[in-house]
Design a binder for these strands. Structure first.
Lengths: 159, 159
DNA sequence: TAATATAGTTAGTTAAGCCTAACTTTGCAA
DNA sequence: TTGCAAAGTTAGGCTTAACTAACTATATTA
């Protein structure tokens, strides 16, 4: 359809957008410094990224000014942030992965998974939360199963 | 432990390794041309990648010669290929995603997920296959659940 | 309001990973 | 055995995304 309005963003650009989104939720406005800190990059990298995103009409950016998202940008940022949440939640709440590990992986995976998979993953997480076997929720049941497996794998020391 | 022997590969390098691995399974040996075709890149890109991987002792490479994996390389390639398989299988067999879509996504996600998550994901897939509710396997049960959701979402036209 | 610290930008560099065009090597067939 | 097509490499260039060093703008505060 209108593939003209659907900017294709790089993983890096999505990361910037997401960071700005998260900062503006907390602080109303995003400062260049905080974006740099959030993403672990140097300040000039942020300046460059903001110029890019500004050209794509995704952020409101004037040199030395605060940064906000355009409606377009907010929409795309929100989509990325939601992917992140859905993936992380699957890792933590269903697979039982430790939060930090899950967050780091979600940060990378969110750029790899398209809407078809994300939609199904979300539905699946709901499905799992809503069903039980022998009175145990499925996630809990899997956790027991995992612990069984884990006994046999423990020697490998994979953290 | 010995983090010295554990070369950190880029996503691209892992892709090359995986392609070579798949080709050597089928053909005993990998040709530069076929690697290029498999990855959809131009021939000179392959030459460059092979030099890199050769420096890291992951492939046996002599200009104008066939390409094989070193034991090191085979180990790492196998790990990537297994990740791919585990992720794709989860997408297809459990989430019910179409094979091609699942394969493409797995190709990207395989670089994002570490062993902790992969191990748990594999165990989870096994767990799902081994359990039923009301006589339906969990995957089948989810499929029914999904179709219900899908009725409500169909208007959005997300492919 | 002037000094100074903090924030932000500019300029220039690097590295990865891709590309095309042009060249070389290899292997097969006449 | 020579000559041609296919495979592979070299050279050079582009883009993205990062970096450091040095400069400029802003804001704080004395």
């Amino acid at each position: 359809m209108n593939s003209k309005t659907k900017h294709d963003l790089s993983a890096s650009q999505e990361d910037y957008l997401e960071a700005i989104y998260n900062l503006t939720i907390q602080n109303e406005v995003a400062r260049s410094k905080d974006i740099a800190t959030a993403l672990g990059v140097a300040k000039p990298s942020v300046t460059g990224a903001l110029r890019m995103l500004s050209e794509k009409k995704l952020v409101n950016y004037k040199p030395y000014g605060y940064v906000t998202l355009t409606p377009q940008g907010r929409r795309q940022a929100k989509a990325v942030a939601e992917k992140h949440k859905i993936i992380k939640s699957f890792f933590v709440d269903i697979l039982g992965v430790e939060k930090t590990t899950a967050g780091v992986a979600a940060c990378k995976a969110e750029h790899a998974l398209g809407p078809q998979i994300i939609d199904r993953l979300l539905a699946f997480s709901e499905f799992v939360s809503q069903n039980s076997i022998d009175g145990d929720g499925l996630a809990k049941k899997f956790n027991k199963y995992w612990k069984q497996c884990d006994i046999n794998n423990r020697s490998q020391g994979k953290s």
